[in-house]
Design a protein around this nucleic acid. Structure first.
Lengths: 341, 341
DNA sequence: ACATTCAATGACAGCGTTGTCATCATCTTT
DNA sequence: AAAGATGATGACAACGCTGTCATTGAATGT
């Protein structure tokens, strides 16, 4: 049927082990041998058999994506990005939704890694920000890559991909200020997500930069849900000193706030400006559409996955324990009608 | 580390081949031997090694989920249902988004099945309704299960799971009629989806049952998108004989219609009733929330997957070519405020 | 020139299953 | 009772790769 390592070896006139060295980038192959083998691989359109590699090697060519996040759009975008890179690198993906607040979450993850002999994990918030989990993985020598909120790499030996929520939140707040708003409320999601506190920091920093006093009563906190938006906006609009703008921690909260405002008979944007975060599809499907910040989730996922695969390869090659690279993405401001004057 | 077929065989005092027969349900094992082996498996907590099975067997323990559908909630719900069953049956899942209208779609699928040695495919609309694709798969002897719109099984040798869109659409239309509406518009999505025509049939059948004349100008057609809802509602509201109710083929269209109505200054539900279909999360996140029909997508996916796995097993056992079972689900009417009087 | 080291390569044994074919015990049939 | 058919089981190779260790040839040091 399809080419095997043996046929490639014969074609190139070397042993199968040398071909194995080439496909695994072991780096101990002479330059001209390397070329010969690569030619043979190309000529025969050889693809290593995953089952055989899994069976013979120490761990399987399978990565795990672990998440605890109700946001379907986010998950799907992450997943698609991960899948693209997995396919390119010959890996499979095991998808594992879980409950981060569960007592047994650590055992669950360790058990999963062991029983499926996973090569590595991709962690997105909030799991990527839980020291206990990371510590347990480190102890067992499990490879992983983290996607999380932050501005610069915390020097670990594991790669990570950062999303600069601080900066983006600053820009959204700045946008509202430039529209003339001074009474700007902030509705937060779960505090356990680092992105929540980062976005809050960005909000506060913008207020400070523009010399606007912080109004603690304007800062509310709930969950990343439509319901939180509805409740919080009601609370805000019940005040005698209503805010004129709201920055919600994500689009779902913002959509809820929009809904709530409308129920109270408040028009958006003329009486109240609302901004969200994430640029999820339904930020375009509200009336009016939401100003938000767009993060290239699929691209972030690709970057994370390819970093992980690279670490995996370098470890197999001999384990240079150097600090892994990290990448930073800054979400981009998207202005729509929910904040227009 | 963990138990292998060999350790189970020793423990049970049989050969490894007999253990293999047991775990594959080959059925040629004596009753008491069977019990012995099952005990051994339980005692040692034995799980067959997937890589070894893949390597030794004819095809891999991997199923493929192929889809062409922009609806994140639907896909994720399908996927979760499929994953649950896969895990239970020891299968992996390969996820493959694709473009159903592509010229090379058939080659793409066949190539994928061959190169990943997939055991079978799970097809959702519109792919599950394309005769060319099904024919090509049949020719190659590729196993698959279909999820599609319909009322009863088309007797094929492949299992299928049906969603009775006709019935549910009838009920939605009936609900509108009972609310006193007679001028009910219908906004369709892509005609290539069987569900579109089924829902349309249900709509027409309800009108007929209640002796209401069909008004062809009230029947519009577009895509399953927010934009279609916006455009179609504008067209409908521009008429002198405006409809008093709209049944949109899915929630996304309905949300667009709601949006469009509001832009035209029409209140929902007092001036116009709107119903959607699907019960996707954002049918709850519009103002007012949408009346819709709820289909248990994850459950449908589970049923489909377990049917497929069963077919696979029975084929391995000797290939009784009997007509495969099919299951029917009827989406359930969910009444919310967008149609209240 | 000779011993020593090191880089490059190969031979070969697994990895844990399934498929094929052979074997053996047990029924039927005549 | 002998022959054949049938059912249950086992021995063993094969699947395609990686890990280990041995071997080769060239470079280095003295």
């Amino acid at each position: 049927m399809s080419a095997t390592i043996k046929s490639v070896a014969e074609y190139a006139g070397v042993s199968i082990k040398t071909v194995s060295r080439v496909i695994n980038n072991e780096g101990t192959v002479k330059a001209d041998t390397l070329v010969k083998v690569q030619h043979a691989i190309e000529a025969l359109n050889y693809k290593p058999n995953k089952a055989a590699r899994d069976l013979a090697g120490r761990d399987n060519y399978v990565l795990g994506y672990v998440y605890d996040n109700p946001n379907a759009y986010y998950i799907l975008a992450m997943q698609n990005g991960i899948l693209d890179e997995c396919r390119a690198g010959g890996y499979e993906l095991l998808i594992h939704p879980c409950d981060a607040s569960s007592q047994s979450i650590i055992d669950e993850l360790l058990g999963m890694v062991q029983s499926a002999r996973l090569a590595g994990l991709i962690l997105s918030p909030p799991l990527s920000e839980m020291p206990d989990i990371l510590g347990a993985l480190d102890d067992k020598g499990i490879m992983y890559v983290r996607v999380l909120s932050g501005e610069q790499a915390a020097g670990t030996k594991h790669p990570c991909v950062l999303v600069n929520d601080f900066r983006a939140a600053f820009e959204i707040t700045e946008h509202l200020i430039r529209q003339g708003h001074r009474d700007i409320a902030f509705i937060a999601g779960e505090q356990q997500h680092n992105s929540t506190t980062e976005r809050q920091r960005g909000y506060l920093s913008a207020l400070e930069t523009y010399g606007i006093d912080v109004h603690p009563e304007y800062m509310l906190q709930g969950t990343y849900s439509f319901g939180t938006g509805v409740e919080c906006i009601k609370e805000l609009l019940a005040r005698s000193d209503k805010p004129t703008a709201v920055f919600a921690c994500n689009d779902e909260i913002a959509a809820g706030a929009l809904f709530g405002a409308r129920m109270e008979g408040i028009d958006v944007p003329s009486q109240l400006a609302i901004a969200g975060f994430e640029n999820s599809p339904f930020s375009r499907q509200t009336f009016p559409p939401l100003t938000t910040a767009s993060q290239p989730t699929a691209q972030i996922a690709q970057q994370a996955t390819s970093s992980l695969i690279q670490s995996l390869q370098s470890r197999r090659r001999g384990g240079d324990k150097q600090v892994a690279a990290s990448h930073v993405f800054v979400p981009e401001l998207v202005v729509r009608e929910s904040t227009s004057r």
